[in-house]
Design a binder for these strands. Sequence first.
DNA 1: TGAACATATGAGCATATATTCATATATTTT
DNA 2: AAAATATATGAATATATGCTCATATGTTCA
Lengths: 118, 118
Amino acid sequence: MKERDKSIIPVEPDDNCIISELPDTETLYDLAELFKVFGDSTRIRILAALMGKEMCVYHLSEELEMGQSAISHQLRVLRSSGLVKATRNGKEMVYSLDDNHVKTIFAQGLEHIEHKQK
Amino acid sequence: MKERDKSIIPVEPDDNCIISELPDTETLYDLAELFKVFGDSTRIRILAALMGKEMCVYHLSEELEMGQSAISHQLRVLRSSGLVKATRNGKEMVYSLDDNHVKTIFAQGLEHIEHKQK
DNA sequence: TGAACATATGAGCATATATTCATATATTTT
DNA sequence: AAAATATATGAATATATGCTCATATGTTCA
């Protein structure tokens, strides 16, 4: 029996190669954690709702037609990953996007979808 | 008892606003589905491994130190969402990235992480 | 054709996660 | 201070998901 070929076929570096250096494994785990946050329809809809306007929990739960508690739980996730920030306004908590990367990540995702639909 | 104020506070449009129009709910669900694919450490590591080189299943499972079956299952997910493509080379199946958006989405995610670490 | 090799796939299991319900905390108003 | 309002949080439950094991499928080579 022959030994399996262990060689790997290298690929030409890309024209528009954005990643200069491959991230280490630990960073990749962090990346996965980040995208996991984007990977839920409720959270994505919250982020979308917060583009162009800041909103309180009540308005969010109305716009998404979901319970206040569910929204609040997800806002907690979004906040702890730094995608959203909150300020108090009287009794209300007003939420807004905390990072412009949210929009760029969004945009890239949309482009992928549109690209694949063709 | 007074009626709750239903008004929403609009926010100034952003300087670098990438999203021209807010996507409809259906598209948002698709977006969440896409990011869900990125939101797993095994799949993220596969994608990272495929940057700069194409690899067969065996090499991937060696590099990630995981079982062949687990890798194969995840490659199926990656393929069905159009992030990865496969070509046969003899007995091997050779996988490579299928969309440059993978790299840009990656890059944006990394920027967010670095931005937050400061 | 049959053996060896490479990958894919289905079932089962264990874990993770999203929502709901009940309740706690915080702020304002009377 | 008490009531009303707005949000946060913990427990419980139902569902989703990733990995493993066993096995099927596909390809090459003797």
